[in-house]
Write a protein that binds this DNA or RNA. Structure first.
Lengths: 261, 261
DNA sequence: CGTGATAATGCACAATTATGCACGGTTCAT
DNA sequence: ATGAACCGTGCATAATTGTGCATTATCACG
């Protein structure tokens, strides 16, 4: 299954990464996953606890760093679905492109799924996205500054809009949108929506990942229409009627694989 | 087979390329692949570690990746020391101030120790610091944008320097510095040092947290002299002779409590 | 074309490290 | 309260590593 020829300390580092991401780990599950005894896992957990990475509990270990808990309680719920969306969205990316990753937990997942050696440049205004990309190799990263809206998780003020408009983006991934055929694409925060509108303008192509729960829902601030995005990535269980209606607007709709594959 | 007639340096370069790609390498596997003994591979790995390309581990080497979380693992130092430093440094902060938190894991720790409802505004160029502050309430956060140097963990390019100079900071916390009475305060990266110099200029007061291991050490690029910082926070076990010498320069030296409190 | 200097390589041996298993104590759930 | 799952420790085993030393390759220079 997994690292049958992996380095021992590589396993420890992988466990550390999950912990620092905010995931809780189970000793038994890790043992079967890495094909080692639970003793080895427990020793890893002991060592990581000594380094201050996690806190041991009965059955496994819990992350200690609060550095990622809130966004993870939000994203941790449907991590499988978001991951399936992100994997499919990652296939839209071509070598050497300059991407923009907007705020939102699905885009954060996409950051972790991007190909490593494709000479990509990623621009983002999202701090969690930037934090995720810092752990990847071979991806150039540019941060849009400005005042941070904590509820959004990134920079969306006027200054950030101006900063963002200095770029030319090949493909941008919008985040945190509601979509409906009738009302178009919309967001929940005015500053965020203003930012997204400017972003679409500087981007040659636009993509949007959508959980099924976001389909045919509305939000107060309109960003544009379904036809304004070039690629729409939806979950495998998206209603075919909605998918068909979206395709009629001229948007390319990609359907993600079922999660847990 | 592989490079059975390749140059030694070529082999070393190929290993380096895999490491910088993010791959983990196994000593045994490389030995068979290049038709040399494991000793030769180990020597390569030692050299590459000295160059800062990777980190040696039992069985091979891991890419030095480095983002926020592995940096803690890399240093191996427990968080207790940094936390003690950060708690003491947090007492320098007064209500309503505008702070700047530079890059570095100790400043990340400080971000987690800052008082919550003191009406603080924090400006930072460090992504891990920003990520930590996103978890806190009641602290206004401003991010300095620009291209991100992954090895540093933040934005330090010319664009970021210009951006930062638009601020007026009450108190800034420098990070990742070496200090010695004779050679002053210095850093390991030229762009980073340029940024820090500009930062000192826009700040009314400057503070610096220093682990004992950084005392009386040198680094290639000078930032300034000990007298250029207003507050120095050192660990409880800092040699009194060094503390005394630093105080004679006119700097206020605060000694942190012992860890494990 | 030799020749001495330098660096790289391979080998032997001791020390370190990781792992799995057994055993007794502890914690959790019913 | 009781059984099951989990944890810590000690120990044996296998794999990996550092070190000193001999051998070989590479290279500059006469």
């Amino acid at each position: 299954m997994h690292g049958s020829s992996a380095l021992p300390l590589d396993r420890r580092q992988q466990i550390a990464r999950r912990l620092t991401r905010g995931e809780a780990v189970s000793a038994a599950a890790l043992a079967t996953e890495f094909n080692v005894s639970e003793d080895a896992i427990r020793r890893d957990l002991r060592a990581l606890t000594a380094e201050g990475v996690c806190k041991r509990v009965y059955g496994g270990a819990l992350p200690l760093s609060p550095a990622s808990s809130p966004i993870h309680v939000r994203s941790g719920e449907d991590i499988g679905q978001k991951r399936a969306l992100a994997r499919t969205a990652a296939r839209l990316v071509r070598e050497g492109q300059t991407l923009f990753l907007d705020t939102g937990s699905t885009n954060r997942q996409l950051a972790m799924e991007l190909p490593q050696d494709a000479g990509l440049t990623v621009v983002t205004n999202s701090i969690p996205v930037a934090a995720a990309l810092m752990e990847r190799h071979g991806i150039a990263l540019v941060m849009i500054g400005g005042s941070v809206d904590i509820t959004i998780g990134g920079c969306v003020g006027a200054r950030s809009v101006a900063e963002m408009q200095r770029f030319r983006i090949d493909l941008c991934f919008l985040g945190t949108c509601a979509i409906s055929i009738e009302h178009g694409i919309a967001g929940f925060n005015m500053a965020d929506v203003d930012f997204k509108r400017g972003l679409i303008e500087v981007s040659a192509e636009t993509a949007l990942m959508l959980a099924s729960a976001k389909l045919e829902t509305a939000a107060p601030y309109r960003i544009g229409w379904a036809a304004d995005v070039d690629y729409l990535v939806v979950e495998h269980d998206a209603p075919l009627s909605i998918v068909g209606a979206l395709r009629e607007t001229g948007t390319a709709v990609r359907i993600a694989d079922a999660p847990r594959g």
